[in-house]
Design a protein around this nucleic acid. Structure first.
Length: 418
RNA sequence: GCGGCCAUAGUUCAACGGUAGAACUUCGCGUUGUGGUCGCGACAAUGAGGGUUCGAUUCCCUCUGGUCGCCCCA
């Protein structure tokens, strides 16, 4: 703690044990997503600030107060990406992906940045796994995306997960609804909490999330979007639900579900978990049929989601699927004998080329210290090199030891026992 | 961004306002190239800066960081 430098607020070092858990989560995701045809994509860690202002929405908390923005030497305003969808849509347009067979199915994993007050499960640099299916308005695309996230969370055996589903309708329907909702809020202004009152114009949907009694009472009689869906929006939502049922995904309709980003239309969903402390969402997403157009592209329907890796790990707690793996072969040598250190590294290299885990002393330890170290790192076998005697192969579990022919070392060691 | 709680070796914990201790880890030793158990030894800390006091790990303030709740969301 006496160190002068610390990882910046809200960031953390990924130490080996945690890195292993993370690799396991990412590996599970990669397998599931690639089987469904989602190909990996990576975009820069920062983008034009305007991409997020236009894409995410100026009225959102993310854009209003959570972005890490800075100016480069040319005077351009850049921002560390707070989310992944707008950048991928930008890449979709920039690389003319509308000429590819649609929908273009992409997956990503990487760091994102939001200037928030850190808490368990909430960081300033956090990591997400996500997918986007761009170029289809089919309800099957919504259902597939949701089913894949459900599949991932199930595969990781995360306890206490629930899926909340809702629909915002089309942009037009939503706009009309928002006017009605604002009217309702204004009519009940006296009962609302000050925060909600202040946000009537900015983000009236937020009022559904409020905790205070006055607001809740006022919201009980408020018009609800899912109940007003009509025409194609209603048909689309019904079809998504039918597809989800067919895929065996369980969910609960949440008429008050809202999302913090402005680009969502129609289907929205959220996977929540009761093990996240002050946080509740593991991951979520929805359809964003207007975003690409908003960014200057042709009208393009799309759907996607993101899930927080730290949230997954938090929900999993200590119940991680740890794997032991086989211990390495350790090459020990008499540190006082000339040339043995070189032979040891040559031997280790040879074993590694043969695909075997092999280590040797890098700390100038005594012969005794080397054995001790071999034991500590869980070595399964130790090769002992001497200046004037044949090499020995020691089985660390049984303690048995016998001379070994170094010309046949790979075969001897690959066999397992000494 | 708002409120509460917290901050001592690498880690987990001690110490009435009066000499900062321990356990685990790491490194070394227990002689004659050989691990685990055991014994001995060494390294190693009051997050930073102010204030009160003869004296502050302990009380007060600011900052930094963590954490819980709010907010927000992944």
């Amino acid at each position: 703690m006496a160190t002068k430098y610390q990882a910046p607020r809200g960031t953390f070092d990924l130490l080996p044990a945690a890195a292993r858990s993370r690799a396991w989560v990412e590996g599970a995701a990669a397998a599931i997503l690639s089987r469904a045809g989602y190909a990996p994509i990576a975009t820069p860690a920062f983008e034009d600030t305007e991409l997020f202002e236009r894409g995410v929405g100026r009225s959102t908390d993310i854009v209003r107060k959570e972005m890490f923005s800075f100016e480069d030497k040319g005077g351009r305003s850049l921002t560390l990406r707070p989310e992944g969808t707008a950048p991928i849509c930008r890449a979709y347009l920039e690389h003319g992906m509308q000429k590819l067979p649609q929908p273009v199915k992409l997956s990503y994993v990487g760091p994102f940045f939001r200037h928030e007050r850190p808490q368990a499960g909430r960081y300033r640099q956090f990591h997400q796994i996500g997918i986007e299916a761009i170029g289809s308005d089919s309800p099957a695309a919504d259902a597939e995306a949701i089913a894949l996230l459900a599949e991932l969370l199930a595969e990781l055996r995360i306890p206490g997960v629930e899926l909340r589903l809702g629909s915002l309708g089309s942009l037009e329907a939503r706009r009309a609804y928002l006017e009605d909702l604002k009217a309702h809020l204004r009519a009940h202004e006296g009962e609302l909490s000050s925060e909600v009152r202040e946000r009537i114009e900015v983000n009236p949907l937020r009022a559904f999330d409020a905790d205070d009694e006055g607001t809740r009472a006022a919201m009980a009689s408020a018009p609800k979007l899912v109940e007003r869906l009509e025409g194609e929006d209603a048909d689309h939502f019904a079809a998504v639900r039918a597809h989800l049922a067919a895929a065996g995904v369980e969910y609960e309709i949440d008429p008050t579900l809202v999302r913090g980003l402005d680009y969502y239309t129609r289907t929205i969903f959220s996977f929540v978990c009761d093990r996240l402390g002050a946080q509740s969402e593991l991951g979520g997403g929805g359809r964003y049929d207007g975003l690409i157009e908003q960014l200057g592209g042709p009208p393009t329907a799309a759907v996607g989601w993101a899930v927080g890796i730290e949230r997954i790990l938090l929900a999993l707690g200590d119940d991680l699927g740890e794997e032991g793996g086989e211990g390495p072969v350790f090459i020990s040598f008499d540190p006082d004998a000339a040339g043995l250190g070189e032979r040891a590294i040559a031997l280790a290299t040879q074993l590694r080329r043969a695909g075997l885990a092999a280590e040797l002393d890098l700390a100038g330890r005594s012969a005794k210290g080397q054995l001790k170290h071999a034991n500590r790192i869980g070595a399964r076998l130790v090769v002992l090199l001497f200046a004037d005697q044949p090499a020995q192969l020691r089985d660390m579990e049984s303690g048995e030891q016998r001379p070994v022919d170094l010309d046949r070392i790979v075969a001897e060691v690959a066999g397992g026992a000494a």
